[in-house]
């Protein structure tokens, strides 16, 4: 049935893991990159992710259509983003504190409304097989690529181009870099930031729908286990660049597959250490790319952590 691949299984599992696990990281970090580029931090995306997972699963179960589930997740994410954005537009409100409150609110609401949906089974999102050329079942399994991953990758390129070359992108960057300059141009920073937060929330919601509707593909209260928070950190790691977000998400997903696969080929001592691989990697890259003389490159000037 399955072919014995020996140690070749390790790179294969890393590629497969990168494709399977990265999508939620990708969507949340793209959403957060957009929000932070406008000068706000939304730490609530973990809550949005969990609520998106729940609402997506619930609607897919009720309607039988996983795509309606994705839509529901995106809408609920937009709503969470809007609430965060509007509250933060009030004077003297700290976006980090609101974000933490929104995170707890989102998770609490998701657990509350999600209770009846732990048991039922919802339809999964479709995947495209890119492994048709191979006879090896492991390769075929690793190259089952979900449509949302492809959409996410396309979005990363699109956002990168948008921020770089379009009027919308320029507006967002101005608002993110200097409120005063934006006001002088006649822009309304609060409105633009709220919109950016809402769109960022929608992305995070879709990331949640991927968790519950494709991989691992079921709704339970431990479904996210902190991936939303990790993705927010990935944005800093990716220096607010959507293309780098894609790379960071893939790296994180692939490194996460290392722990299980090493055990499966018999390297079983110290698996707790291998499970820490993604975090060690993050620390390593952050140290390697840090600079003692220069402020963080790419950081939006209005961000409360850089101000």
């Amino acid at each position: 049935m399955e072919t014995d691949l020996g140690y070749w299984i390790i790179p294969l599992a890393i590629i497969g893991g990168a494709i399977r696990v990265s999508t939620p990281f990708l969507f949340v970090s793209l959403g957060e990159a957009l929000t932070e580029r406008s000068g706000r931090i939304n730490l609530g995306l973990e809550g949005t992710l969990v609520f998106g997972a729940m609402s997506g699963y619930a609607l897919a179960h009720l309607t039988g259509s996983p795509w309606l589930g994705v839509l529901a997740a995106a809408l609920s994410g937009t709503l969470f983003g809007l609430v965060h954005g509007v509250i933060c537009s009030l004077p003297k409100v700290n976006d980090i504190a609101v974000g933490i409150a929104m995170m707890i609110l989102g998770m609490g609401l998701a657990f509350y409304f999600g209770k009846p949906f732990v048991q039922p089974v919802a339809p999964d999102l479709p995947a495209i097989s890119f492994g048709w050329w191979s006879e090896i079942p492991q390769v075929r399994a690793a190259l089952e690529v979900n449509v949302l991953f492809l959409i996410g990758a396309a979005l990363a390129v699109l956002l990168w181009w948008m921020l770089r070359a379009t009027r919308v992108g320029l507006t967002l960057r101005v608002v993110g870099d200097s409120t005063d300059a934006a006001r002088a141009m006649g822009l309304q920073p609060a409105v633009i930031r709220t919109c950016a937060t809402a769109v960022g929330g929608a992305f995070a919601g879709v990331g949640g729908a991927y968790l519950s509707l494709y991989y691992p593909g079921s709704w339970n209260e431990g479904i996210s286990s902190g991936q939303g928070l990790m993705a927010v950190a990935l944005v800093i790691f990716a220096r607010w660049n959507p293309l780098a977000c894609l790379g960071a998400a893939l790296l994180f997903g692939g490194a996460g597959a290392l722990g299980p696969v090493l055990q499966s080929v018999g390297v079983s001592e110290g698996y707790y250490l291998f499970f820490a691989a993604p975090y060690v990697l993050t620390l390593g890259v952050l140290i390697a790319t840090s600079s003692p003389t220069q402020a963080m490159t790419g950081a939006p000037g209005e961000l409360s952590i850089t101000k």
């Binding site: 599992a13 497969g16 893991g17 399977r20 696990v21 399994a141 968790l211 991989y215 691992p216 593909g217 079921s218 339970n220 431990g222 479904i223 286990s225 991936q227 996460g256 597959a257 722990g259 299980p260 055990q263 499970f275």
Partner: peptide, 9 residues
């Protein structure tokens, strides 16, 4: 959940 799915794969 995610690690259990990865382990199963």
């Amino acid at each position: 959940a995610v690690k259990e799915a990865e382990a199963t794969n």
